[in-house]
Amino acid sequence: MTFQRVKRMVAAAGVVVAAGALPILVASPASATQGDCSNYVATHGYRAGVKVKAACGNKAMPFPGGPDIANPYCIYDLVALGVSNGVANEACVRA
């Protein structure tokens, strides 16, 4: 197997595990909102249009015994729109 193929298989396995664990982790609704996420992006100089709001629709995931963690889909979508990684991560924690 090539290295690229192994990387893709590991990534796919990670997504499957995350998707299977998500219902277990989501015990209560998050207190932050899509608006908090898009407002955070806007306060850092980025345009918070429809695509940013759509990315922020990927809610943060509650972490048992700790703070919410950013949804990887939210971070990926915001970074693809040109938002810096640090701003995207913090915004997605607020989603």
Rank of each mutant, 00 (worst) to 15 (best):
T33R: 08
R94D: 05
K59S: 03
A12C: 05
L22S: 07
R8T: 12
K7H: 01
G57Q: 13
K59E: 02
K7R: 07
A48D: 05
A12S: 11
Q4Y: 05
R8D: 15
C92M: 11
N58T: 06
P29M: 01
T43N: 15
A18I: 09
A88R: 03
M1L: 04
L25Y: 06
L25Q: 07
D68R: 15
P67V: 09
A21F: 02
C92T: 11
N39A: 15
A60Y: 00
T43I: 15
A18H: 02
A11Q: 13
V79I: 02
P62F: 00
G35I: 00
Y73R: 14
N71W: 05
A21L: 11
A55M: 02
N89D: 03
R5D: 11
A18M: 13
F63D: 00
V26D: 01
A27E: 12
A32G: 15
A80Q: 15
I69C: 03
Q34F: 01
C92N: 11
P72M: 07
A88G: 11
V26E: 06
S28D: 04
G66D: 13
Y76Q: 10
R94F: 09
L78T: 09
V52L: 10
N58W: 08
A70R: 06
P72W: 06
Y73G: 09
A32Q: 10
L81Y: 07
V6L: 01
N89H: 02
C92W: 13
A80K: 15
S84V: 08
V52G: 10
V93E: 13
Y46L: 11
K7D: 01
